[in-house]
Design a protein around this nucleic acid. Structure first.
Lengths: 346, 346
DNA sequence: CTGAAAGCGCTTACAG
DNA sequence: CTGAAAGCGCTTACAG
């Protein structure tokens, strides 16, 4: 195993100075095509690649971004492929850092990360402690670009707490719009009585769905049996439906996610309620299994790849001091299935 | 925003030479406790942190590992948290790199990655092209440690194609053992007729389950209706059960994963077959929804966090030239539920 | 259009 | 036990 060739080696082989080699590789203007070609040929021959540590030392730019993920939750991981691909396209490398669960440790680790000088930006898939919101060496960005020029040492920290800010900025309740769509469809089909199996109150996505439900009940003059709080789990859906009194059928159940809906379906089946004749049911997330339940579950599909890519583009824009890119639209789509009766024409 | 302090700044503040500061931070022996303390105090005051790019340039070690994930598949992502945490504990930083789907592009990108000099090791969650197996600047390691000393420039590339090698090395069929466990239990309960809904033949995990199924049929002298190939999808499970002739009940269906099992359950329900009375059913993966199907699905739970951690430890051992750590055991556990009848006592 | 030279912040023999 | 000095491989004014 020989030593890696350096720009000096390339320079010698090409018969030019070392700085010329550097100029070629940094794409600086003013190198004659002939020289450029000589350098490139020599470099290819030697299998030369610039040493990025050395470059980073001079430029004081690392080209690295960190993505912070909570170790316990897997859901945010599904955003990773899109985010990573987006960063790679922009010439960044992304490191995934997992944060401890315990609050104080977590804050420490995060502070260390931000202060390490290793990253130009940090994207958090988990809510940030308030200490990092707008103070200290880091700033939490919402939508505004970096205000000042010429301070590449500033680390941009961006929390993507479920992308709520962005989605909300795209129009009130935009992120819960499918709830409205589904309810309107069911109401048009004759459903008058609704029930919402909600997620936890401390998730903004959960709150948005709840609000969309309530607003739609109000607007369309429907009857609501209420909102039953849950914790995203199948158990909470099952318990909720088991606790329902007899004689409330027919009812349209709007669950906050597929897991809750699956639990609800299980309970309804056990009680001998027919779906969709007695009870219609909708979920959210479109898990792979949902299409194969009996009956198959109407749900909402999210383009998580585009969502991940968008969040990364937002971070990179902030790092570069550019305005935030527009939030993507059409990320959500209702997938109609048997649990809501006849499938409407697309 | 001031400049980051350097070791010179710390030296000046502590009244020692710059090399002494370096010695303290690299943990070199032979620094008096008093001096050490002075340096540490000054460093803390200035909020000094060694510049890792500079260090990396001198030491020629990057402290960075890459994890390669196929962009389209999310399953391997569930191994990430464990792998990342393990690397962090060992003092490495891990970058996640997504590979293009197209074969030739993919190989190029991988070669570039390996040759980039940026990583001390590469862990692949996707099978590697054969070109990288044992030739070129990279080596694919299976279980043997790095043979030679003193060549830190060598990049260790480790493919974790479903961890098959490792699992197999832990004992033949160890990774499909739960299939045996489940079949023995069902046979003990009186089931004589079995059917296997398999996954694709080009997955080693799928093959192992198939072999375990066939071997157990043979060993216990059971009747097998055959093995029906599938593609891991719910559709393949649904189609398989729909295509079954009448009059084969009772039958014990062993599905290669939960998705196939969910499709099979749907079809069985549609045909009016009672589960578990007429047909018992098992899956694999223990998806969150599986516990809330009606009936709930017996499945196999994998400790993916430990699996991810193990693969990372294996890579790190190889990078350091140490022997491979022993493969973890007890990573798989059968979760008994309604779809196989009365739950056995734990 | 090209080159000589300084310097980014460290580590590490080497000398004391 | 501590320090002066070389050098890792680059980028970038500066001079020609």
């Amino acid at each position: 195993m020989e030593k890696r060739p350096t720009s000096h080696d390339v320079a010698r082989a090409a018969g030019v100075s070392q700085s010329t080699v550097s100029f070629v590789f940094t794409g600086r203007a003013g190198i004659s095509p002939a020289t450029r070609q000589k350098v490139l040929t020599a470099a290819a021959e030697l299998n030369y690649r610039p040493n990025l540590a050395a470059r980073s030392m001079r430029t004081r730019r690392t080209g690295r971004l960190a993505v912070v993920v909570p170790i316990a939750t897997l859901t945010p991981l599904t955003l990773l492929p899109g985010a990573i691909a987006a960063a790679q396209e922009e010439g960044y490398v992304v490191e995934v850092v997992s944060l401890p669960h315990q609050m104080t440790e977590r804050d420490e680790r995060l502070a260390e990360l931000i202060g390490s000088g290793q990253y130009e930006g940090v994207l958090s898939f988990t809510p940030l402690p308030s200490a990092h919101a707008g103070s200290g060496p880091a700033r939490e960005l919402r939508a505004d670009p970096r205000p000042e020029e010429g301070e590449p040492d500033q680390v941009v920290v961006l929390a993507v707490a479920e992308f709520d800010d962005d989605m909300h900025s795209a129009g009130a309740l935009a992120d819960a719009l499918p709830i409205v769509t589904m309810m309107e469809h069911l109401a048009a089909g004759g459903q008058r009585r609704f029930l919402h199996l909600a997620g936890p109150r401390d998730f903004r996505s959960s709150l948005a769905r709840r609000e969309a439900y309530l607003a739609t009940i109000e607007r369309l003059g429907l009857e609501s049996l209420g909102v039953i709080d849950g914790d995203w789990s199948g158990r909470s859906g099952e318990d909720a439906v088991n606790a329902l009194p007899d004689g409330i059928l027919p009812v349209a159940v709007i669950a906050a996610n597929d897991l809750i809906a699956t639990g609800a379906l299980r309970a309804a089946t056990r009680r001998g309620w027919r779906v969709p004749e007695d009870l219609t049911l909708t979920g959210w997330d479109d898990h792979p299994q949902s299409a194969f339940l009996a009956p198959s579950l109407t749900s909402v599909r999210q383009d998580r790849e585009r969502l991940g890519a968008h969040s990364m583009h937002r971070l990179i824009a902030a790092v570069r001091g550019l305005p935030a890119p527009p939030a993507p639209t059409d990320l959500l789509r209702v997938v109609w299935r048997e649990s809501t009766g006849p499938v409407p024409a697309a």
